[in-house]
């Protein structure tokens, strides 16, 4: 039977750092492109299916029926947490380098969950059903990261 053999110490394999990149340029198209351009202007737009469901982020087709989606609709910049996970030890590519939550957020006026990070400080501050609000990046460029993250909706806390 095949056995993995450790290399003898005098033949340590050579190591070199290597960043794998595929330098593709993508066209975002009329639907995702419009959504990303909206983010640059600090506006979140979804798209309506023929059944009237609002998809955020928008898609060119209704995932249920395959039909083309129709009108764009602006949705709120705040919404409700549908589910979440808590990252105690962020990875280098995570958007926040302190403990934070990932969440699917149903924005006001939308029918689907929108994935993003929530800067809640502590896990005890997170719960399904809580309201969160967008925190925009200082500079917006037409990328999903124009939303820096979400944060617990302090208006609700005061109310």
């Amino acid at each position: 039977m095949f056995q993995y053999r450790p290399m003898p110490a005098e033949h340590e394999p050579l190591h070199a750092s290597f960043t794998l990149e595929y330098a593709y340029t993508r066209s975002t198209g009329p639907v995702v492109g419009r959504f990303l351009t909206g983010l640059r202007d600090r506006r979140i737009e979804g798209v309506k299916t023929r059944e009237g469901r609002v998809l955020v982020p928008p898609a060119e087709y209704d995932p249920e029926t395959g039909e083309a989606t129709e009108d764009f609709v602006e949705v709120g910049s705040a919404g409700v947490v549908q589910t979440w996970s808590w990252v105690a030890e962020p990875l280098p590519k995570h958007p926040l380098q302190r403990p934070f939550a990932w969440a699917l957020i149903q924005l006001d006026g939308a029918d689907t969950g929108f994935l993003h990070a929530v800067d809640a400080g502590d896990e005890s501050q997170m719960s399904t059903g809580m309201r969160v609000r967008v925190r925009w990046a200082e500079e917006t460029k037409g990328f999903i990261t124009d939303i820096a993250c979400f944060e617990p909706d302090s208006n609700e806390a005061r109310a």
């Binding site: 982020p57 589910t83 979440w84 996970s85 808590w86 990875l91 958007p95 990932w102 994935l115 999903i144």
Partner: peptide, 22 residues
Amino acid sequence: DPYCVAPLGIDSVSLAALQARA
């Protein structure tokens, strides 16, 4: 999704954890 999800830097375990809590 290279436009709305991948650039957030989310990893496989974090995604599965969203499903687990749901």
